[in-house]
């Protein structure tokens, strides 16, 4: 786990599994299971506050 200046939390693999069961939407309003986002390669998920 990297050194963080923000709020640090030790994420468990189980939490990532739960995250993978959630869906996100693309611009056409189509749902994608989050697990598909990282199934094939190392992935950086950047959660932004809003699209402002």
């Amino acid at each position: 786990m990297g050194k963080n200046k923000g709020k640090q939390m030790n994420l468990e693999k189980q939490l990532i599994q739960k995250l993978g069961q959630l869906n996100v939407l693309n611009q056409d309003n189509i749902e994608t299971p989050m697990a598909l986002l990282w199934e094939n390669q190392k992935t950086v998920l950047i959660f932004v506050r809003h699209f402002g």
């Binding site: 786990m1 640090q8 950047i46 959660f47 506050r49 809003h50 402002g52």
Partner: peptide, 26 residues
């Protein structure tokens, strides 16, 4: 604002299903 202005974000890096980096914006 196109979203929830009070909601903060962060970054998660995942490698082979394992979290290898996590940062929650303060």
């Amino acid at each position: 604002i196109q979203g929830d202005a009070l909601q903060q974000g962060g970054v998660v890096v995942i490698d082979s299903g394992q979290p290898v980096y996590f940062y929650a914006n303060t």
